[in-house]
Design a protein around this nucleic acid. Sequence first.
DNA 1: TATTTCTACGCAAACGTTCCCGATAACGAT
DNA 2: ATCGTTATCGGGAACGTTTGCGTAGAAATA
Lengths: 347, 347
Amino acid sequence: MKFEPVTIKDIGKALGLSTSTVSRALRGSYEISSETKRLVLEYAEKINYRPNPIALSLKERRNHSIGIVVCEIANNFFSQAINGIESIAYNRGYHVIMSQSHESYERETVIVDHLASRSVDGLLVSVSSETQDYTHFKNLYDKGLPIVFFDRVANEIITHKVIADNFKGAFDATEHLIENGFKRIAHITSAPYLSISEERLGGYKAALEKHDIEFDDKLVHYCYHGGMIYDEIENALTKLFKLKLKPDALFTGGDRVTTTCMQALKKLNKKIPEDIAVIGFTNTNVGELISPSLSVVRQPAFEIGQVATELLISMIESKRPVTDFETKTLQTELIVRDSSSRNMTEK
Amino acid sequence: MKFEPVTIKDIGKALGLSTSTVSRALRGSYEISSETKRLVLEYAEKINYRPNPIALSLKERRNHSIGIVVCEIANNFFSQAINGIESIAYNRGYHVIMSQSHESYERETVIVDHLASRSVDGLLVSVSSETQDYTHFKNLYDKGLPIVFFDRVANEIITHKVIADNFKGAFDATEHLIENGFKRIAHITSAPYLSISEERLGGYKAALEKHDIEFDDKLVHYCYHGGMIYDEIENALTKLFKLKLKPDALFTGGDRVTTTCMQALKKLNKKIPEDIAVIGFTNTNVGELISPSLSVVRQPAFEIGQVATELLISMIESKRPVTDFETKTLQTELIVRDSSSRNMTEK
DNA sequence: TATTTCTACGCAAACGTTCCCGATAACGAT
DNA sequence: ATCGTTATCGGGAACGTTTGCGTAGAAATA
């Protein structure tokens, strides 16, 4: 199917004017008589003329569009973040182009290359859990393509980054468990080289240390697919429960990890919080409906998306090369419910 | 920031060839000597040449991108559908441009106009709950812009449509409640003029009729914001509970409506299913974790997205105008859990 | 009246490609 | 020696805009 659009040339032909005159009239240039302007504007309106954005892009060498690279859309955190991204982009006149890495490094490289081959003015990325090498970003970035990382960032690339305070979020969650009397706190999280995993593990360790609980790496499990693969989670849990010194609490890092852990615990017939207390990073909006109601660390996903987009657009629209980069850290929210409660276990 | 890309011209200059020769060499034309081809290919590889997609778009008058218009991304159904859309689009070499109407008719018109002004080869749309007038789609469609509707469709526009079998899904859910002994079945759903609302209401009525239960419009409530506004849902529920003949079961139509109803019921201290049994349309993946575990009608969101995208791309790539349109109906899945169980109430 | 200054418009290049049409050379055939 | 082929390449238009520059005529100035 073809979509035959009306061009500036058509207007010129119809009105006996040159394209330049029409163009100028449309932009309201002072060198066009008001009479001609009126004529052009009226005719353009009549035939519902819309400038061809592609021709403009070619001329101005920009697209007014930004690319998003995330592992998956169907995830509470990311869909909320994308919502934030879209809200800002829309107001600033940018289109948002979506793509998913599905936690695959290879696919990420393909996507990024595809997006960046100049069909996009900038990139908003949260790296895949498989990604350990960042040269595909580095190459483009060095060539001048603006990139802002959010959530899962590439520390070795010097640019704007927007993250939640994962350290503090993890610290608070862990300390909350400790203060509720739990001593053997397990931690299931995503791939170890992910920035978020590192930061959350750091907070977890710091809380243990503060309360003089020895860190035990047998209590920490990494799920390389971020909870996308059920068995990975179930295996981690069964290993934990086979320990001589079983955990009495679980702190999960990641939206998918948390919900999948809850499903696995249900399947394994573990009572929460009697058998094991649970608190985890997740942005689900039905935490209170879950049985028992789920204690969570909630990330300001929408705001992260917004801030990242603002930074990216400022980079895109900056005349001079940007040299002053910042890492914005937004606070998480600790929502305590029943799944991490000591009271429940004492009944 | 500027992103200085290498063009076909640069290659020509460096190698002492014309742009046409370079272009042909790159495409492997038979009229270029293998020696020249080798030279060009090697050099292009070396300097990492990527064709400028914008220039191509201008030339070929297409973009290899499709626009998505939905009410919101952060919604289980839509994020899963978008996942399906992206999966097909990626394989077929199309970019996916996202936008949200936020259930606003006005915003929808602006978005559609913006997207369609030729920055997109086709549109995948699920209309907003406010939309009753479809001329903004009709105009573009008549001009030749391919459009495929999914989920919430515009019946008056003759094109491909992909929907879940909302009638049957609603029928099954309602009949399930009836067979479990419930007699006063309330129905809370989205805006009445939405195709999905109509279809689901139809299934609901048909099930009632089959089992000789009189339809009572006092048991039906429409939420014009599709559950996005909490109070709208709570109001509907309190009205239901103020009825002389209170409902004993609730069938909800819509992802957001269902989860928000659950939240409101919790806040109103209603026991499920003792005070009121619940089953609803939703694509949440934590239905079994909810207390009580939630009976749901699940839509094949991912597949709906896939099928819609395939149809759209077939329209885009069709040489001749498409005249044979189909409405694909995919089956829903009834997942019975505790929230709609009679047994629970008899304990 | 001759010259300058506006006013209002057109020409053409440019953005990066593709592709139709020629152009040039080599070469065998006549 | 001339011609038609074939192989290989370049010129230039086109896609839809914007914009620097040029220039016509009219008005203003000298």
